[in-house]
Amino acid sequence: MITVNNLVKLFGTKRAVDGVSFTVERGEVLGFLGPNGAGKSTTMRMITGFIPPSAGTVSVGGHDVQEDPIAAKKLIGYLPENAPAYTDMTVFSFLHFAAELRGLRGDEKKNAVNRVVEMCFLGGVLHQSVETLSKGYRHRTCFAQSIIHNPDVLVLDEPTDGLDPNQKHEVRQIIKRMGEKKAIIFSTHILEEVEAACSRAIIIDRGKIVANGTPGDLKAMSEWAGAVSLRVRGASPAVVRAKLSDMGGAKKASADEEGAAVRARVYPSKPGNRDLARAVAELAARENWKVEELHVEEGRLDEVFRNITLPDTVKEAKS
């Protein structure tokens, strides 16, 4: 549904977006990650046709956004960053306005407004002026606007920004549910959201895509992925570390005191070694360690994110 081809955006001499290409098919939810100023919002603005690209093309549902903007825009629902809304309107009239611009009339319009009011829990503030809404409610109002015409493509710039935990959960559920039939791109700074709602994630840094894969793929890039974590009693950290490091299939191991017990972690020498956990358990039994906890680490997105996007200078300074 969405094809982005070699997209470039220059602001002056600054390359805010620098050769980004990807596609999103119907039934996919693409999470867009990246540090502040990476170019996420700029990319989304080009996809929705708000700003023209300096180079490259975007097509939505087969319509080139530059050549045939109206046809492309019809397919898109867009929640801009910071959820702008007309402050001199009520929620009710704002939603009606959006529905009318989307070409909905009469009963169709009424039903559409009722549907999104229910979905986004706006019933209580329906006749309140947008100006006096709390941030979360304003966000929900703008989100409601983006789904009012049940679009095939949704572009959401930080849809859960400013929402309370319940609403965050609700919006993720909505995204996930709608993602089965639509093509959705959303940007976020909350990594759990990617795991909760995305079928694929892209990490973008300084205008370039630096990682692209399923949340599982990304997590597997973590050095923690596949590591076995355990907590034992009955041995000193030094002994545990030595024994674990000498095990076959282990690259290195760490062990530290944690209260009266020892917290240890073994990293596999090659990724995807499923036997490591069993080997560790057997070793513990042989050594008579009392195992309190043992599990295989999945890898953590925040660690992967940090590793990929920290500027090299910072990385060097840290190591």
Partner: peptide, 14 residues
Amino acid sequence: RLGTMELLLTMPIT
């Protein structure tokens, strides 16, 4: 100022 221009100009109108 409100940023609603982004909303208005990404609607399917010229």
